[in-house]
Design a protein around this nucleic acid. Structure first.
Length: 378
RNA sequence: GUGGGUAUGGCGCAGUUGGUUAGCGCGCCAGGUUGUGGCCCUGGAGGCCGACGGUUCGAGUCCGUUUACCCACC
């Protein structure tokens, strides 16, 4: 059940109650594709970072170690020792970003695994069965994420097909949840809006899937190469047609500013690999802007990454030390930086929720968007 | 001591029968990264080619001397 506690313009402050705990929104979900946060973080670290929702991936876990294996071990929560909410991405995006030799039909997608080339078929039913085996809190519908730019005719055909797939996802999920052997009989299903960068297609698609009475609605297929203003336009176009009483999720987004802009336009859920991937390369977010720890100017800098940050890395280590760890290719460099960036993101979300609680999001948004994606000047 | 081999950016190496601004990998410096392979992509700095002399219109390349290191044999 999703409850909106407060609104400010289009921005919403809410809570999604799930069998694995409450999700206070707006929220950033921490990406752990293969049931692990890259950079060497465990579920215990996630708690310390302030993470409330973990995100894993259907495609990756199906290929390795296999969703049947995870089911036999009691489901994903027990497998990775994380008792909070988990959202599983459907594999739709991976089929289109990683897999080779894919062939799309009305049934689903036949493709070769990016690991070993093995032939795999995944359609709406397969994706739901895998996610049911994983027992995640929230399952995502199996969709086609069309590359950008795309022809109008193809975008329309694909969006229509994704809508038909969504009905099949919903039917299969109902069936699976009713089975006595279901790992999580309360598993929620979010549908995904598509339509590339064509506002009329997005709106038409959104109107269609809004009638399916799903547990939440995602906007997919954005942040795939189009300029940020176009992404914001698409959100503004579909937002009026998204059910007000259901959580909204902007998939794969984004930079701190993208998130501020998304919330400003009525989005509740976000996820992105950016904080963890950038951290592994030494690119860090701070309250004063971005820094690249690999830069020579930090070689003898005794200050923490972010002087006002309370994460493990900032409480105990200097920029000079962590930069050294990067140069020495020590795994600890990535671990400390990933901890920092995810802590930053989760803290930013706490600050955003507080600002919404206090009715001052507008001011917060205007102040922070000028800083967070800019380069730190020091 | 004798014979052979190698000397080219920080490191490891290419460089044709002598011919424009001497290349490559790694490293270094700096960008990028949006429902994750740590992969990867894009720029940039850095070399009087061990030293000295000779041949030539022209030498990293050919010749001589020399220095350093490596290998084999005594």
């Amino acid at each position: 059940m999703f409850v909106i506690k407060k609104t400010e313009g289009a921005a919403r402050r809410g809570v999604l109650r799930t069998v694995h705990g409450d999700i206070e929104t707006p929220v950033f979900m921490n990406v752990g594709t293969s049931a692990a946060i890259k950079g060497g973080l465990s579920a215990l670290d996630l708690k310390e970072i302030g993470c409330t929702v973990e995100l894993s991936n259907t495609y990756h876990l199906h290929i390795r170690p296999g969703d049947d294996l995870i089911r036999r071990l009691g489901g994903l929560h027990r497998f990775m020792s994380w008792d909070g909410p988990i959202l599983t991405d459907s594999g739709g995006f991976q089929v289109f970003s990683l897999a080779q030799l894919r062939k799309i039909t009305e049934e689903g997608v036949a493709f070769s695994s990016h690991m070993d080339g093995k032939r795999i078929f995944m359609g709406p039913e397969e994706s739901m069965r895998i996610q049911s085996n994983l027992g995640s809190t929230i399952a995502m519908a199996f969709d086609e994420c069309v590359e950008n730019p795309a022809e109008y005719a193809y975008a329309k055909m694909s969006a229509d097909r994704t809508a038909r797939w969504l009905l099949r996802c919903q039917e299969e999920m109902k069936r699976l949840n009713a089975l006595p052997t279901a790992v999580n009989p309360q598993q929620l299903l979010f549908g995904i809006n598509q339509g590339c960068t064509y506002a009329d297609l997005r709106i038409e698609h959104m109107k269609t899937i809004a009638e399916y009475e799903l547990d939440g609605y995602a906007i997919g297929g954005l942040a795939v190469g189009e300029p940020a203003p176009v992404m914001y336009e698409m959100i503004e176009a579909v937002e009026p047609y998204m059910p007000k009483d259901k959580p909204r999720y902007l998939m794969g987004v984004g930079t701190p500013v993208n998130i501020l802009e998304g919330i400003y336009r009525g989005v509740d859920f976000f996820d992105c690999v950016m904080p963890s991937r950038n951290a592994r390369h030494g690119n860090l977010f701070t309250h004063f802007g971005k820094i690249n720890l690999n830069n020579e100017k930090y070689a003898e800098d005794p200050r923490p990454i972010d002087p006002v940050c309370g994460c493990e890395a900032c409480r105990h280590h200097s920029r000079a030390y962590i930069r050294h760890l990067f140069k020495a290719r020590e795994a600890l460099a990535m671990r400390l930086c990933v901890i920092h960036n995810l802590y930053f993101y989760n803290e930013m979300m706490r600050d955003i929720r507080q600002a919404l609680d206090d009715g001052r999001y507008e001011a917060f948004y205007r102040e922070k968007r000028a800083i967070y994606d800019a380069r730190c000047e020091d």
